[in-house]
Write a protein that binds this DNA or RNA. Structure first.
Length: 639
RNA sequence: GCCGUUAUAGCUCAGUAGGUAGAGCGUAUCCUUGGUAAGGAUAAGGUCACCGGUUCAAUCCCGGUUAACGGCUCCA
């Protein structure tokens, strides 16, 4: 007998060769019905898997994330089976499970159109009801190649050829459909019930633009249809937060055909920008930063010297001035280099923390543009820190703390990635290793969780990236810290050391917001447009009940304006209900209703955004409340 | 850049099986002076994205361009 340790810690004896489904049945009938796979010693296996030795086993159902993932993967096979039935001759790519669903890539002479999705979905439903078991089969490399070559599945053949020598090769069959697959899968197609095909998209084979573009069909899949409906509802709700919609509704910014990717900021959007910049300046001054401004256009020679010409040319814009070739800056660093060289630096001057809110232009691919999240010109809240090698770790930690402080103020949750050397890069392996290790050490010293993003560093150095989520859960890089040994070398930066000799400083490039534009987009989605008081473009709107209260409203407005409150008055001849409705739809934090009673008593009837109740306050009390809330940068989320 | 979809008033969208367009919201003017989410009337507002083609006639059909949207690639 073998010993099987279950999730609850209990131990059961079983005969060698007992399958997972037999084990599940021995635990309970219900579990046997719900079981779809199991984690055996941490690895997910089919129900048909036989236990041959002592093991810890966790039965997976559609109630666990891992169980769902198995089902979603099986759903992709079901999709492929349906497509093969309806569109014979379609060649298969790959079909994994993804968050909330699955996709499958197809190479087909037929171009899939949205109407096809309904047909395919019906076919999937039909196949699901057939309750085809997913049958596992191990196969030799030779037989696998022969099988898929015979079926003209060239992508599968390529995959098999790329498998390591000692790899086990397996196939799964449901009905008349067989796919190369490591598994595991649900026991039968009947477990795939709550799904919906979502969209069609192009996707390069193996993610490389050098390869053919296949047609990808995305689908959603959940344990039950109510979960699916909930998710679809949530997606719709999330779209209400979309910064592109809110940006229009709240009159923050606009984009036009005349300048794709070059956003126009409206007066209210400018308030956000300026408030973010004011906060940024204040916090940086506290931390020993100075601020500079370098030109947007600089001659081509500079960019050749910096390495951008060799490594970043495709993303740059160019111009000619008096027959000389110039570049529009895609980054601020070369300007910073020139600034550093304007005088002799002593080791006593270091670190120099030199900030710049710099407008950069980058030629992003047209298909990549996305509201304010991906634009062609944006303002980086940049800084270059020039330092002694001995100051590296401390400076990096200082920046990590700064980023963490900022994101905390806004109530953002973030995750961190460490991006390592890309293919197209400059410098020696030793420098790269040193730089990468320095970043790692700083992260470890802070005890931060991070994931390694291999080959995603800048061309001049590795980086720590801080990622924030948009309304649909897509993540965007905002803050970044990049350690650079190359730029100081290229520009022959020096400082005079204690020994009186010249030495090479080390440099950090870093941003906190990342780009003001992207950060505003994420803030808009984060707050669903209801900005905290300190950021709100309009903080207070006064709503006089009727004309005869305009004078008092004017008095209140003047008083609040003196306190630097962003305030306006709606003195149109509209009913108070109408004005209240507007102030709510515009998500203005405070509405002050003033009528006879208020004018007489010197009070205001305060209605806060999102709340129904009102609070009558003495004017001074309201001012105090505002100032306290602005000062604390309090975040109040919509319920 | 690549694949797919889309483009009608400031916004959200109808519409014409080819005969130059309509609603709601918003805007303007007038009436209404109203106490916490939409009072009423009237009016203005569109080369139906742009350039070609087919046709007696194109917003509609065809081709191209541009932009937006969903992805891929890329990235702050």
């Amino acid at each position: 007998m073998i010993k099987v340790t279950l999730k609850d810690g209990s131990v059961r004896e079983a005969a060698p060769g007992t399958t997972i489904s037999e084990l599940a049945a021995s635990i309970s009938q219900g579990l046997a019905r719900a079981a779809i796979a199991a984690k055996v010693n941490g690895k997910v296996k089919d129900l048909s898997y036989s236990l041959t030795e002592d093991a810890s086993v966790e039965i997976l159902t559609l109630d666990n994330e891992e169980g769902l993932e198995v089902m979603r993967h099986s759903a992709s096979h079901l999709l492929a089976q349906a497509v093969k039935n309806l569109f014979p001759g379609t060649i298969l790519g790959i079909g994994p499970a993804i968050a909330n669903g699955f996709y499958y890539d197809f190479d087909s002479g037929h171009t899939f159109i949205p109407e096809d999705l309904e047909k395919i979905e019906s076919e999937m439903k039909r196949l699901s009801k057939q309750e085809y078991p997913f049958q596992y089969q191990e196969i030799s490399r030779k037989d696998a190649l022969a099988y898929f070559q015979n079926k003209q599945e060239k992508y599968k053949v390529e995959l098999i050829n790329d498998l390591p020598e000692d790899a086990r090769i397996s196939m799964y069959t449901q009905g008349d459909f067989t796919d190369l697959c490591a598994g595991p899968h649900v026991p039968s197609t009947k477990f795939i019930k709550a799904f919906k095909l979502q969209s069609i998209a192009g996707a390069y084979w193996r993610g490389s633009e050098k390869n053919k573009m296949l047609q990808r069909i995305y689908g959603l899949a959940f344990a039950k249809s109510s979960d699916l409906e909930d998710y679809i509802f949530k997606l719709e709700e999330a779209k209400r937060r979309d910064h592109r919609k809110l940006g229009l509704d709240l009159d923050l910014f606009s984009l036009h055909d005349e300048g794709p990717g070059f956003p126009f900021f409206h007066p209210k959007g400018m308030v956000l920008r300026n408030t973010l910049e004011d906060f940024w300046r204040k916090e940086h001054q506290k931390r020993g930063y100075v601020e500079i401004k370098t030109p947007i256009i600089l001659n081509q020679g500079l960019w050749e010297q910096s390495g951008h010409w060799d490594h970043y040319k495709e993303n740059m814009y160019f111009t000619v001035i008096d027959d000389q070739r110039y570049c529009v800056k895609p980054m601020n660093c070369p300007g910073g280099m020139i600034m550093y060289r304007t005088k002799l630096r002593s080791y006593r001057d270091l670190p120099i923390r030199c900030g710049e809110l710099g407008l950069v232009h980058r030629h992003e691919l047209s298909g990549a543009l996305h509201g304010l999240l991906r634009v062609r010109n944006f303002t980086q809240d940049d800084a270059h820190i020039f330092m002694l090698p001995s100051q590296i770790k401390e400076e990096i930690i200082g920046v990590i703390n700064l980023v963490d402080y900022f994101y905390h103020v806004f109530g953002f949750e973030y995750h961190v990635e460490l991006s390592t050397r890309p293919e197209k890069s400059m410098g020696s392996d030793a420098d790269w290793e040193m730089a990468t290790n320095a970043l790692k050490e700083a992260l470890d010293a802070k005890g931060m969780d991070y994931k390694i993003n291999s080959g995603d560093g800048a061309f001049y150095g590795p980086k720590i990236d801080f990622h924030l989520k948009d309304c649909l859960g897509r993540t965007w890089q905002c803050g970044t810290i990049q350690l650079d040994f190359q730029m100081p070398e290229k520009f022959d930066l020096t400082y005079v050391g204690e020994d009186g000799e010249k030495h090479r400083p080390v440099m950090i490039h870093r941003v906190v917001y990342g780009s003001i534009e992207r950060f505003i987009a994420l803030l808009t989605e984060h707050y669903a447009g209801a900005f905290p008081l300190w950021l709100a473009p309009v903080q207070v709107r006064i709503l006089p009940i009727s004309d005869r209260h305009n004078a008092y409203a004017g008095k209140v407005q003047t008083l609040l304006k003196e306190q630097d409150i962003r305030i306006e008055t709606d003195d149109r001849r509209e009913k108070i209900n109408y004005k209240i409705r507007e102030v709510q739809t515009e998500k203005i934090p405070f509405a002050l209703v003033v009528g006879d009673k208020e004018a007489e008593e010197g009070t205001v009837a305060v209605r806060r955004y999102g709340q129904q109740n009102t609070n009558t306050l003495k004017l001074q009390d309201f001012i105090d409340l505002m100032q306290e809330e602005i000062k604390s940068k309090k975040v109040i989320f919509e319920g």
